[in-house]
Amino acid sequence: MMNEQEYYKIINETVISISGLNKSFGDLEVLKGIDFELLKGENIAVLGKSGSGKSVLIKIMVGLIKPDKGEVIILNQQVDKLTPKELNDLRRRIGFSFQSSALYDSRNVYENLAFPLTMNVKGLSKADINNAVEEALEAVGLKDKINQMPSDLSGGQRKRIGIARTLILKPEIMLYDEPTSGLDPITSGEINDLINQVQKSYNTSSVIITHDIQCAKNTSNRIAMLLDGKFEQTGTFQEMFESKDEDIKKYFNYNLIH
């Protein structure tokens, strides 16, 4: 996390802008009028309880799920109006870290990282690929795991490799889906540090989906609470912590006690 002075020095340029977004599955209304903005260089944590539609929201951002209504503008492009080729060009600029890591389990770590690179950038030499893979592994601190299979890695290591796999295309935006879920507090802390380090060294703007208050506190410049399909309030951790809103208070108190 940057300190406050660093934070306010950033030019106020919007990289993600969502307005009036609705999404239902059959009778289940998941998102009911989302307005959301991510500024360049900023980390926003989206807090919300399980099943509130957090994953649906970031899947809409990369065009994995089509919205029913509303406008989703990422890096000045309206996602649901793009041709498949334009969508792919946009996707190369976005890193998506899956809740389940989603490593290709029939490929080893090296191949997992090299795959998106070789499929997207033509004419790379073997040495270029090796260098890029090593650089990305270095960034997540797992250079020694290069020849391991995903099934031989721990949960935290898999998360890191998943993040390294997205870093290899040098994304401008990082979307993290529950980066610390299912991890012990120490490993969670390491992932939080990694998220902050990625923000600094790759100059990314990030959306961090989480239900983990510690993660939100340590990685974000701003917090948005997803309550009943909407963002009623956004603010810094301190502002949210001191909020008078009953639902927000309940969320924070419950998390801190347990």
Binding site: K59, V62, L64, N88, D89, R91, R92, I94, F96, F98, Q99, S100, A102, L103, Y104, D105, F115, P116, M119, N120, R165, T166, L169
Partner: peptide, 10 residues
Amino acid sequence: EQIDAMEVSA
């Protein structure tokens, strides 16, 4: 989600 992962890496 490996198929989704391919999709988001273009």
